[in-house]
Design a protein around this nucleic acid. Structure first.
Length: 137
DNA sequence: GCCAACGTTGGC
DNA sequence: GCCAACGTTGGC
C-alpha cells in the first residue's frame, strides 16, 4: 500500500463532486514527475485530496480504483490517467498553514515543491495528516 | 547540451 | 491581481 496526495482546484473538480459522482478519471496531468507518480499508483492505494487555490486544505481521502492507462484527453505525448473513488471525507479540514507549521510535515512535497500536482506521501505523514484531520479509516 | 525566455501554477 | 518558483521550449 502506497500513499499519495493529489491536488485539485475545487471550482474545477472538488472532493464533494467526487463523492456525488462516485468515481472520476484523474486526467490532464502534464508534468513528468506527476505522471510518473500516477504510473506508480496501485489499485487500492490511498490519496489525500487537497484543494488548491480555494480552500488550501486536505479535505478527504480517495482510493485508486484503476491503475494507469493512456490519458484520453492527451492529443499528443505520452500521458497517463488513473481512476479514483471517494473513500472518506475529513471530519476537519487540514489547512496548508497548519501543515507548514507542523514539525513532522517539513519534508512533505506539498511544502517543498508546491507545484507538483501528484506526489508521494510517507506512511508517517499520511497517519499524521489523518490525525490532524481528526479522521480514522 | 546549455541556457535564456516564456508560460503556468498556486500562494498570498 | 500580483508575483515567485518552477518546468518546458527552442535557439544556438
Amino acid at each position: 500500500m502506497n500513499y499519495w496526495l493529489v491536488k485539485s482546484e475545487p471550482d474545477v473538480y472538488s472532493y464533494e463532486r467526487l463523492e456525488s459522482e462516485g468515481t472520476t478519471r484523474w486526467d490532464g496531468v502534464r508534468n513528468y514527475m506527476a505522471r510518473n507518480n500516477l504510473r506508480a499508483m496501485k489499485t487500492g492505494d490511498l490519496c489525500l485530496y487537497y484543494h488548491s487555490n480555494i480552500g488550501l486544505a486536505v479535505v478527504g481521502i480517495a482510493r485508486v480504483s484503476r491503475e494507469h492507462y493512456p490519458d484520453p484527453t492527451a492529443e499528443s505525448g505520452d500521458w497517463s490517467a488513473v481512476d479514483l473513488v471517494p473513500l472518506k471525507k475529513f471530519s476537519r479540514h487540514v489547512t496548508l498553514a497548519e501543515i507548514k507549521a507542523h514539525p513532522a510535515m517539513q519534508q512533505l512535497l506539498l511544502v517543498r515543491n508546491p507545484r507538483i500536482s501528484v506526489m508521494p506521501v510517507t506512511p508517517d505523514e499520511f497517519s499524521t495528516l489523518l490525525a490532524m484531520g481528526e479522521t480514522t479509516l
